[in-house]
Amino acid sequence: MREMSEAVAAAVDLVARADPELVEIVLLSLRVSVSAVIIAALIGIPAGAALAMFRFPGRQGLVIAVNALMGLPPVVVGLCVYLLVSRSGPLGNWGILFTAPAMIIAQTILIVPIVTALSRGVIEDLSTELSEQLRSLGVGTSRAMLTLIREARYRLVTAVLAGFGRAIAEVGAVLIVGGNIAHHTRVMTTAIALETSRGNLALALGLGLILIAVSLAINALVYLTSGIARRRAGA
């Protein structure tokens, strides 16, 4: 367990010195994963709401598929995005392989199913509860969707945070499409993988502790803010 105490020391040292490379890595991790989460929320929440509200042929199959895709292996996603944006791939002329946008795309694909599936569950419950009332008031489809999303907002926060947790913690996809390039596409998880491969287990673990702390801080921040808003709305 000597590694553990060394890891804590390494983490404390990096944070205390505000190590510029660490700051850069943490900021890039946050930018990539927060961007992916925002895009995934803009796609996944309306998609989840649509799955919750509408009945159409093949809906059940789609629900099962989305649920199953929550377990998408990051490496597979990374590989697919790589094949897409590689110079020899269909989107090769975008020239975004080994850049942050490619990492955002990969993480977005990874977490859209999570946000969609969890949103669907939350909104379906609400829809069952409220749909008669909304129809009675003469609310049209699109307004009903926006209303249900707004009504579900505090529970959707959990869905979005689940997506964020998956994005910030995954290494397989960003490693492949980002390339772990120093000062350019190196994020916390790929830095951890790199230090592990250098045998710097304490430093790797220290970075891991910082990753957990950052993730914890983000979750606490979002949870507390939404808790305050929720109490003010009496929900």
């Binding site: 509860e129 409220l130 008669e132 009332q133 009675s136 008031l137 003469g138 209303t147 707004r150 009504e151 505090y154 709305a233 009496g234 929900a235």
Partner: peptide, 16 residues
Amino acid sequence: RVRQAMVFQRPMLLRR
């Protein structure tokens, strides 16, 4: 359609 309204067993209020 617009000249009728309904109140349900549960109030079904929105969170606002």
